[in-house]
């Protein structure tokens, strides 16, 4: 299978696989990580199971898009710096091209009476999808039964929704609370 590939062949395969995975993955970071695991762990045997789990945790912990973070990690693991660069390029090219094409039509499209009605209906659907995600995430936070968490949720919500505080500032404050908590209190209830 993948054993006798030269370095150049391996990098090329990494790039093409990244393109392929990125072009056909709908639905966010976790879906793409599942696809990566299927290719790089199960099919090519470039990375082992346990390490892929850790790379997933790293991708999720780092700021930015999970798919891009995972591409950097997997690419770097497979082919060093050029590997990381090619994997990122492969991950970014499909969505950029698709959105460029859509944006060409968007202005003309959105002005059309029928398309405007469809888009307006879809906005209602998007609001429902997002608030559904909020309920699921909120449940996970509530399961930790932490007073500090509750305080962060209420504080952050009031700050963003009622007082229109800059989002960056809210994130920084939450991070600061996280650091204080990790150093002052004994970290408890850390997931798995």
């Amino acid at each position: 299978m993948g054993q006798e590939l030269t370095r150049a062949q391996k990098l090329w395969k990494l790039f093409v696989t990244s393109l392929y995975i990125s072009a056909f993955t709908f639905g966010g970071g976790f879906v793409i990580i599942t696809f990566m695991k299927r290719k790089y762990v199960d099919e090519f045997h470039w990375i082992d199971d346990k390490e892929m789990l850790d790379l997933t945790a790293l991708a999720q912990t780092s700021p930015g898009a999970i798919a891009v973070n995972a591409a950097i990690l997997v690419g770097w693991r497979v082919g060093g710096v050029p590997g990381a660069a090619l994997a990122v390029l492969g991950t970014v090219i499909p969505p950029v091209i698709i959105i460029l094409v859509i944006s060409l039509f968007y202005a003309a499209f959105a002005a059309n009476k029928y398309v405007a009605l469809v888009l307006k209906g879809m906005q209602a659907g998007v609001a429902a999808v997002i608030l559904d995600v909020v309920c699921n995430l909120g449940k996970k936070v509530a399961e930790r039964k932490s007073l500090i968490d509750l305080f962060i949720v209420l504080g952050a919500f009031a700050a963003t929704f009622f007082f229109k505080v800059n989002v960056v500032f809210i994130i920084l404050i939450a991070g600061l609370i996280g650091v204080l908590r990790a150093t002052l209190l004994k970290p408890k209830g850390v997931e798995k």
Binding site: T61, L137, D149, A156, F161
Partner: peptide, 19 residues
């Protein structure tokens, strides 16, 4: 991960605000 765990409640609130 313990630091990340503190981001999570804030992020949930921010997503709720956007939604």
């Amino acid at each position: 991960q313990s630091i990340l765990a503190s981001f999570r409640p804030a992020v949930v609130a921010l997503i709720a605000g956007a939604g």
